[in-house]
């Protein structure tokens, strides 16, 4: 039986349009990043990447990502466990609240942290008394990064844990397993791939966050410059090749993220086919 849009002409036209538009709109920018980064040869690219300030920016960016991931992981698992394993008043409100970072503009996210923890904010003033300054230093960058990335793990886990239900865990607990053993031996094996993908998404956003970080960082070269901020400074200084060298590093992480997703989906599809 023929389905809608099965006529060869329609089919070819639609596939052609989708391919041409995607190539221009999505693939071309990706190619352009690497073309620009290597436009003056591999040696210049290498010199740009191994520059002291770039290395420092890479180090800071990785450190922020490494500190952000465990925090988001603990929160994501706790929230997903809470809203999928128990029913209580306010459950839906919690689920809506974690979407706030997705709706809030990154600049606004940075601003609200600056207002609270900056010199004029009430926590900031109090901390200033102890000579602690969180804004315009790496703890501030870490805090806003946690804000913008915290929904990812929870968002990956909740639909999956909802669909799986809690029968297996209930069986384990009834048979006398402790809560921790149940989580480690029953829940974790079921959710590990979604967990991994949540971490990958968290990482991608943590290394790439720009708007929120640029508000709270102060962007001091060699001190509080993350890779996206460093890239912006190079670009504003008309060092396009240098900026695109940093962009290529970030684009490479993005490509790893995309392949991880494709790999995990392929794995899930194969398991479904054998199940």
């Amino acid at each position: 039986m023929r389905r809608i849009g099965d006529a060869p002409v329609v089919r070819r036209l639609l596939i052609g349009a989708a391919l041409v538009l995607s190539a221009l709109f999505l693939l071309l920018p990706l190619v352009a990043i690497f073309a620009q980064a290597f436009s003056e040869g591999v040696m210049v690219f290498w010199a740009n990447v191994s520059n002291t300030f770039t290395l420092h920016a890479i180090g800071l960016t990785l450190m922020i990502a490494l500190l952000t991931i465990p925090v988001c992981l603990v929160f994501g698992v706790a929230l997903a466990w809470l809203v999928t394993r128990f029913s209580f008043p306010g459950r839906r409100i919690l689920q809506t609240l974690i979407d706030i970072p997705f709706a809030v503009s990154p600049v606004v996210a940075g601003l609200i942290y600056l207002l609270l923890y900056g010199r004029n904010g009430w926590i900031g003033t109090w901390l200033d008394g102890y000579d602690i300054q969180l804004m315009f230093s790496w703890p501030g960058i870490l805090m806003v990064t946690i804000f913008v990335t915290c929904p990812f793990v929870a968002r990956e886990l909740i639909p999956l844990m909802q669909a799986q239900g809690s029968r297996e865990e209930e069986a384990a607990v009834t048979l006398g397993a402790s809560g921790w053993t149940t989580f480690r031996r029953v829940t974790l094996p079921n959710i590990r791939w979604a967990l991994l993908y949540g971490v990958i998404l968290t990482n991608a956003r943590a290394v790439g966050e720009f708007g929120a970080v640029s508000v709270v960082s102060g962007a001091i070269r060699g001190k509080t410059n993350t890779l996206p901020l460093h890239l912006e400074q190079l670009y504003q200084d008309y060092n396009a090749v240098g900026a695109f060298a940093c962009a290529a590093l970030l684009a490479f992480i993005a490509l790893l993220t995309l392949s991880a997703k494709a790999g995990l989906e392929w794995r899930a599809a194969r398991r479904e086919a054998f199940a």
Binding site: L26, P29, I33, G208, A247, A262
Partner: peptide, 23 residues
């Protein structure tokens, strides 16, 4: 093509910004 769809989410916004501006 399916994998490419997620590129805008995976690519840092500043990278997208300077790339589109240059293109």
């Amino acid at each position: 093509l399916d994998a490419l769809m997620d590129l805008p989410f995976a690519l840092p916004t500043a990278v997208a910004g300077i790339t589109l501006a240059t293109l």
